[in-house]
Amino acid sequence: MNDQTVATVKPRQLSDFIGLSFTFFTSLMAITYATGFIEKIMNFNYLEICLFIIIVILGYLACAMRANIKTIVIAGITMSFFILSFHQSSLNKYLIFSAVLFSIGIYGLTVSRNAVRVLMSIELMLNAVNINLVAFAQYIDPIELKGQVFAIFVLTVAAAEAAVGLAIVLSIYRFMASVDMERFKLLRW
C-alpha cells in the first residue's frame, strides 16, 4: 500500500527548481523596480526595456535547460508587464495590456496547428483592439465616446468572422477528415 503511494508521487527534478527560481527572481526584480531601488543605483532612460531584455534572455536560457515552458512564459509575461507599465500613466497601462494580448494572439496565430485554435487567437487579437478603442474613448474622447461605437462595430464583425470561419473549418474537416493547418493545401495556386 505504501509502496504504491510512494511510486505515484513524482520526484522533484532540476527543471521544476529552475522554473521556481525563475519565477522568484523575476518577481523579486519587479518588486525592487516598483519600490524605486534600482532607479537610485543606475539612472538612465531605458531601464525598464533593459530589465525586459534581461527577463527574455533568462527565460530563453531556462527553456533551453528544459524547464516547464508554460511556467516560464506566464512568469515572464506577467512580471515584464508589471515592470514595463508601472511608472506609466493610466492610459498607457491599458494600451500596454492590449499590446501584450495582441502579441500573444500573434504567437498563437503563427504557431498553432489546429485551425480552431487559430480562430481563437484571432478572437483574442480582436479583443485587444477593443480594449484599445474603449481606453481611448474613456481618456481622450470622454464626451462623444466614439471609441465605444467603433467597439460595437468590431463586435459585429467578430461575430460574422467567427460564424464564417468555423463553417469553413467544419466543411474542410468533412472533406479532409483533419483540422491540421499543415495539411491544408487546397489553395496552393
Binding site: 526595456i49 527574455v56 514595463l84 506609466q88 500613466s89 492610459l91 498607457n92 494600451l95 500596454i96 499590446a99 501584450v100 495582441f102 502579441s103 500573444i104 500573434i106 504567437y107 503563427t110 504557431v111 474613456q138 481618456y139 481622450i140 474622447d141 470622454p142
Partner: peptide, 26 residues
C-alpha cells in the same frame, strides 16, 4: 513565432511610450 510576437510587442511599446496622448480630465 516567438521572435515575431516579441518584435510586434516591442514596436507597439515604443510607439505607446514615445507618444504624448492628449488626455482630457475625467
Amino acid at each position: 513565432g516567438f521572435f515575431l510576437s516579441l518584435a510586434v510587442f516591442f514596436t507597439l511599446f515604443t510607439a505607446i511610450k514615445s507618444e504624448s496622448w492628449p488626455v482630457r480630465p475625467e
